[in-house]
Amino acid sequence: MRREKLRRLSPLSEPGSPEHLRVRQLRARDLLRGDLDDDELTEHVEQSVMTTTLDKVLRWGASNSMFPMTFGLACCAIEMMAMVTSRYDIARFGAEAFRASPRQADFIILSGRVSIKMAPVVRRVYDQMLEPRWAISMGACSSSGGMFANYAVVQGADKFMPVDIHIPGCPPRPEALLYGFTKLQRAIMGNPDQGWRRRYNAIGTEEWARDDVIAGQPSEASEAAYGRARQVVARTVESTGPEGAGGGEGPRGAGFG
């Protein structure tokens, strides 16, 4: 069972018969002896080495060793601290090393309401962070102003800085923050599918499917993507998958997974 899965995943085009396997074994022996050269060597390398782009490896590495910034604003900061503790343990996802300096941090969690007096400070701290950098807006206040629709609070931190993930809640539970963080990881890794839409038969409910509205009308691309996604749901053809439903056509940063 396991071997079969591995074989399916392997880059070799042919899973291979016993004879084919025998040929590969012999060729590997020749390689070790140094008898292989030129075309044969090239062919062997192409068949047996899994190639990937450096970009992908970098993104995989980056997403699994994120340094958050120690930046607490209000109530959510306490829940952010709780995320580090033993019960929630963000170290499982490789983001337990909180950095006090923005220069060393990879992402910032806006944990709380951003007042008009604090907004320039937040923006400056964000500007001091090195690229690539990400921002999570935690809780209702920093996402939209929340319940504080008044003179003192900026109505959503994305008014003055880019935000990648919004986490609802007042304050969000640490689990919610963890979920948001794993979403961010997916986003960094190039937006791979998390798989739950397929499990829950929810393909077509992506936010990007109805995004980039211009003057009340969805754009052609998103309309087409939305229609395709709906078709997928209607047909419930499993083989189509999220890629067939227009994955990658949505704008970057909107709706992951």
Partner: peptide, 8 residues
């Protein structure tokens, strides 16, 4: 003084 903020 108006309370400010934005309509939802």
């Amino acid at each position: 003084f108006p309370i400010g903020g934005e309509p939802v």
